[in-house]
Each structure stands twice: as C-alpha cells, then as structure tokens.
Nucleic acid binder design. Structure first.
Lengths: 97, 97
DNA sequence: TACTTATTTGCGCAAATATGCAAACATAAA
DNA sequence: TTTATGTTTGCATATTTGCGCAAATAAGTA
C-alpha cells in the first residue's frame, strides 16, 4: 500500500467523517432528484456558505456529483462511487494479511 | 437516521480518515500477532506519544482492540468490526431512497 | 531498592478546520 | 436594465487537531 493511496483513502474518509457532511450525504441519499444547496441547507442548521463549502469537499472526493443548470447547481449522491470505495476498503482490511 | 447515529458514524470515519491512523490500521492489517505501540511506532515517523494517542482514538471507535499484558499493551485490528461497519455504511447508502 | 522499558499525560505551539457574515458573482425573470 | 435568487468567496474568529518534548506512571528485572 503506497503512502499516496493511503492519503487518498484518508481524504475520502475524512470527507465523510464530519457530522454536517455526513448529514448532507444521508439527506441526498433520500432524494431521487438532484438537489440544490438551498434545499440541502435545511438538513443542517448552518449558513448557506457553509453548505457550499461542505459540498465542494464532498465533490472533490467523489462523494457527490455537481450539475450546473443556469444559476442553479444541483447535487446528486455518487452512490456507485461511494459504495464501491467503502466496499473496496472493507475488502482490503478483510483480506490483507 | 438519528443525529446520534450519524455522529457516531462520523466519529468512526474520522478515526480512519487521518493519514497516520490509517497507516497504523494497514500496518496492523499485515500483522498476524498483536503488536505493541513501539513496534507500530516505526510505520509512521512520529513520537511514541503520538502513536499512543492515535491508538487510543482507534480503540475508542472500535477499530483496534487493546490487550494488557504486564507493562506491555498489544493492539490487534478489530477486523470484524471495521469490515462490518464499513459494509453496513455502504449498504445504507446503496439502498436508502 | 534502583534501573530499565513501555506507555500515557500535561503543556504549548502551529496548522487545519468549521463557521457566520458580508460582499461579490452569476443568471434568470420582471 | 433592474431585481430577485442561488452560490461562492474573502475575512475574522473560535475550536479542533496533530505534534514533540518532558514528566509521570506502570510494571518487569537486576
């Protein structure tokens, strides 16, 4: 396992490992349609700018996908990627010896 | 999903989401026998006290198990728990709608 | 007891992080 | 163009975090 890979995985886990960000993930989890930041803002009681920043971090780590539609930006959970990454991690820890 | 559960999951992910701690996890991953902190110290270039603190955090979150034997304390990866927790998280994110 | 070894804890520091507010931007609608 | 809406960014601040060092603690050994 290379240091760089470990760092990358750590960054992914860190992105999920914060209360408001994980709340956003679960919120998006229950949405069948893309959501904008204002809507997502309701799930955690913080300023819109804070949500914006959290979503940026989540997007950087491949947790959410961003779609630009005019002045609105909508976010969807990148379910496939998150699930894949978590399962790969679990498999590594299970099988490594 | 209750806030408390989210906080708990976030804490678990945060514990794994730091480079040195994740390095410790992978180090332990490759050890078939319990390791003491001095040995684990080698895998990340930090002071023993730092490793001690990291291991404490990992133990609190159920990532590693601590065994006291005289003056020595040995750590083993709680593979089962880590794998279970990660897979549950993956399943939740996969199936929630 | 004195000494050695392994680990934890207190302290301080520097860097990172989360947050709110206000201002800047971008874009759609009136 | 003006206005309204959604989002990002700059700034200031408070808190958290990771770290090293030295001292304290714990427990085995001479």
């Amino acid at each position: 396992m290379k240091d760089l890979d470990i760092q990358e995985q750590a960054n992914f886990l860190k992105a999920l490992g914060e209360f408001n960000r994980l709340s956003l993930v679960y919120k998006l989890c229950q949405c069948s349609t893309p959501q904008n930041a204002m809507c997502l803002c309701e799930c955690c009681n913080v300023d819109a700018s804070v949500v914006s920043r959290h979503l940026k971090i989540l997007a950087q780590e491949g947790v959410v996908k961003l779609e630009k539609k005019g002045r609105e930006r909508t976010y969807t959970l990148d379910r496939e990627n998150v699930v894949k990454t978590l399962r790969e991690l679990a498999n590594q820890i299970e099988n490594d010896l």
